[in-house]
Amino acid sequence: MHKYITYRRVSTAEQGKSGLGLAAQNRDLYTYLTHYSGQPYEVIAEFVDILSGSDDNREELEKAIELAKKEKAILLVAKLDRLSRKVAFIASLMEDKKLQFKVACLPQADKFQLHLYAALAEQERDFISQRTIAALKEAKARGVKLGGLRDKTLKRNKVKKDNSVARAKALEPLIKPLRQQGMSYSAIARVLESTKAKTASGSTRWHSKQVARYLDILGLTKVPSLLLSSRRIQNETDVSIT
Rank of each mutant, 00 (worst) to 15 (best):
L75W: 01
I233G: 15
P40S: 08
S203V: 07
A170E: 14
I233D: 14
D55A: 07
K155F: 06
K140S: 02
D81G: 10
K97I: 04
S84A: 07
I188M: 07
R85K: 03
T221A: 04
V223F: 11
L20Q: 08
A88Q: 08
S225L: 07
I133S: 13
G143L: 01
D216H: 11
D238S: 12
T195A: 13
K160M: 08
V103F: 00
L220T: 03
L220M: 07
I233H: 15
T204V: 03
N26M: 14
K79A: 01
A141S: 08
V159Y: 04
E172L: 15
D216C: 13
Y30I: 11
R190T: 12
S129W: 03
A109S: 09
G16H: 03
A73P: 04
R9E: 05
K97M: 00
L178N: 05
S37Y: 00
L171H: 06
Y214N: 06
K102R: 00
D55H: 12
G38I: 12
D216F: 11
V223D: 04
S184L: 13
Q123P: 06
L29K: 00
L220H: 00
I90K: 05
R8G: 05
Y117K: 11
M183W: 09
R85S: 05
G147C: 06
I188D: 01
T132N: 10
G19H: 12
Q108E: 01
L136P: 12
A141Q: 11
A200Q: 00
L93S: 02
K196L: 09
L218D: 10
S54W: 00
K176A: 00
T12E: 12
E62H: 03
G182M: 05
L33V: 13
K86A: 01
S18R: 06
V223C: 13
S37M: 00
L76W: 01
Q25E: 14
E172M: 11
M94W: 00
R27Q: 14
Q123N: 14
G53K: 06
D238C: 13
R179K: 09
R213P: 09
L120T: 13
